[in-house]
Design a protein around this nucleic acid. Structure first.
Length: 278
DNA sequence: AACCAGGTAGAAC
DNA sequence: GTTCTACATGGT
């Protein structure tokens, strides 16, 4: 086990986990156990000091995962100077959020599940899936399950996923999983532009513009992405006096406004608008 | 009991 | 090209 300490107001464990970018974590002792792909770590923040505890061999993985190489004071600083009041306020109250660099496969399947769904329910479905198809592991005496790889997900049919509560999304999982495990669809970066990546992702059944933007942002760290969901659409009308109705156009508007800070700003205001509880 | 949730596919216009 | 609608499930 290895402990990594970061002293900064720009890293808060609760805010980073609760802002809706990740679904597999749970309270543990004074902090949280966080799962990513087949790995697990423990993270807690107290008095502006964040402590990450990892297995020795996972140190680099989680340093990258929590985006420790980036200077968030710059990002938050720019957001605080925004001409939009809501962005200022959100950046101030949520300055401890970091955009996690999550494993792409897990991000893709997680956000396919997320569509037209509620966060607690998304978490529950993903947890049941990991229990059913993932590998049982252990971290710091706590049992957990890895997120199943595409080739394992591909072995089950839609009926199996309906049993797990997927609803109409059940069809999407085997369809996408087969394309990935067969090599027909590659989740490597390939140096595509964000627009090209987004287009490529939407070729998958069950992946529309919103899910593609989430995968681009949380799985590929394309911070020039601005996922537009029901909350952001509401906020766009109320706090930006927006008149557009097409979500793709609303997303373009925000990316035009915030550029490479888009993903960060999106998370600040999403978390701010939804309310900090849950 | 309608309405909503980190929307999308397929059809209709 | 853009707009409309059905879609499972569980919460208010």
């Amino acid at each position: 086990m290895k402990k990594i300490e970061i002293e900064s107001v720009f890293f808060n464990a609760k805010d980073t986990l609760d802002c809706g970018q990740i679904f597999r974590y749970k309270p543990f002792n004074d902090g949280f156990l966080v799962q990513s792909a087949d790995k697990c770590c423990y993270v807690k923040t107290k008095n502006d000091v964040t402590e990450i505890t990892v297995n020795d061999e996972d140190e680099e993985y989680f340093k990258n995962f929590f985006d420790l190489g980036a200077d968030y004071s710059e990002i938050v600083g720019r957001a605080k100077k925004s001409r939009f009041e809501v962005v200022k306020r959100a950046a101030e109250s949520a300055c401890g959020i970091r955009i996690l660099r999550q494993q792409t496969e897990e991000t893709l399947f997680s956000f396919i599940i997320s569509q037209n769904n509620m966060i607690p329910r998304i978490k529950a479905i993903i947890e049941r899936t990991a229990r059913a198809l993932g590998e049982k592991r252990e971290f710091s005496g706590e049992e957990y399950y890895s997120f199943p790889r595409a080739d394992v997900l591909a072995e089950k049919n839609a009926d199996f996923y309906k049993e797990l509560g997927y609803g109409y999304r059940a069809d999407y999982i085997p369809s996408v999983a087969k394309k990935i495990s067969s090599g027909e669809f590659s989740l490597t970066d390939e140096g595509l532009s964000t627009a090209e990546l987004r287009k490529k992702l939407t070729s998958l059944k069950g992946v529309g513009p919103k899910v593609a933007d989430c995968v681009a942002l949380f799985g590929f760290h394309r911070t020039d992405s601005f996922p537009v969901d029901t909350w952001i659409e509401k906020l766009y009308r109320e706090d930006f006096d927006g008149t557009l109705t097409d979500r793709k156009k609303i997303a373009d508007y925000f990316v035009g406004e915030f550029g490479d800070d888009s993903g960060f700003v999106q998370q600040y205001i999403f978390y701010y608008k939804r309310g900090k509880t849950q």
